[in-house]
Design a protein around this nucleic acid. Sequence first.
DNA 1: ATAGGGTTAG
Length: 523
Amino acid sequence: MLPAPPFSHGDFVAVLSRCATLAHLKQLHGRSVVTARAASQSTTFQLLRFASLRLSCLPYARRLFDSTPHPNVFLYSAMLSAYAAASPAQAYGHDALALFLRMLRRGRPAPNQFVYPLVLRAACAIGVQLVRSIHSHACKSGFHAYDVIRTSLLDGYSRYGMMLDARKLFDGLTERNVISWTALVSGYARAGKIGDAIVLFDRMPERDVAAWNAMITGCTQNGLFVEAVGICSRMVDEGFQLNGTTVSCVLSACGHLGMLKIGKVVHGYAWRSCVGFGSSVVNGLIDMYGKCGNLKEARWMFDEFSDRSLTTWNSLINCLALHGHSKSAIAVFDEMRDEGIEPDVVTFVGLLNACTHGGFVDEGLTYFKLMCDELRIEPEIEHYGCIVDLLGRAGRFEDAMNVINDMKVQPDEVIWGSLLNACRTHRQLELAEFSVRKLLQLNPNNANYVVMLANLYSEGGSWEEVTKIRKLMKEDIMGKKLPGCSWIEVDRKTHRFYSGDDAHPESEDIYDTLDELAASMEM
DNA sequence: ATAGGGTTAG
């Protein structure tokens, strides 16, 4: 056999950078083996990183790792990074942790300061108890002295809302930088302490794009959408360029507000700047246009975009469901499955909502079955809400109650509310009263429920029942309710509506139109 | 050669 031609390190790096598929990488790997270049762990390191980070091929990365007789600390780190980058993170947390334990058990290679942040990310995906144990391990082994590791710990605690622990770590840092500040700010925001987050953000000595993004997301997580847009504009005023993350966060805020105008401004910004139309930006645009009612534009964006992720599909399905285009939502779902995209929990929220809105009882139940039994996705409260609604509509109250009783989570207002609604259409007085009591336990301030029950009884009621309602009303729940509010932007003007108000100048026409719509819906 | 903060869908 002829000896393999020489294959320098430079050749290797050049070829690696041009690999686009796993097949390319395998060829390069093979050539590295033949030329003995693969004997060097730094070569395996490069191949492993490329397989995991650029090609997202975790199994191949792991095979590279396993084929190395005595992996050094670089290979361990690379493998831990691969697990950290894989999604969903929880799925690989245990694998990552097992690698760390193997290092400790064998005593070599000894973990270094680069290993701890990676292990902490895995620990964080599994549970806060593990964050605690890694923390104490870091203290004992002396690695706690590293600011980067303390920042990882800070982030770990803050993700579980443990802001006192996070704060302690922050205060103990030798040097604070924009990263540790940002970790703290987003921790407070996630924990719902948005006021603290804003104060800290304003006190930050230095901010970068990620810091601004953290503050913007912090606002949207707390429902402060107007503030999120405001911070974004402050960011621009202070001379920062938005990136894809900023754009998607702000578009999400615009969607929640129905601010089509500002959404279009952001769209224009993305067009002019070098942000680019990556999947996060496009997903944000689909969501924003869809939520603002411009489904045509949303659909157009979706059709024009080829690099669709799961979120892209979910955004479109959700928007269609939101606007009552149930059949289209289902069609998009089928199309998605035909393309081999695996749906997730969020997909089914949109899909089941579509079935509920469209009154597709059998389809909804079939999809719910598909989700639970075939795809093994654990349903969340939203899914149960849809199913209870569907069964209720069909008058299948026994089934509905069985679903509620079998739920692994506590039923919420949506669940009992949709059951109550169904009881009303099917004249199930007893179950209706039961639901109302449950609703009042959950939210004693909402007088609507009592009014609904009163209406029910008054339609076919007896004196005995009237007394019941009087009693419920006495439980001092009337008059405390905050009115529901919605708004819409038309020609640069925002029109705001409270439930039942007639303050709008065109109020009469609006109610007439609503009546017409209600009538045509009943047909 | 490797590490810490910011994504969007309900």
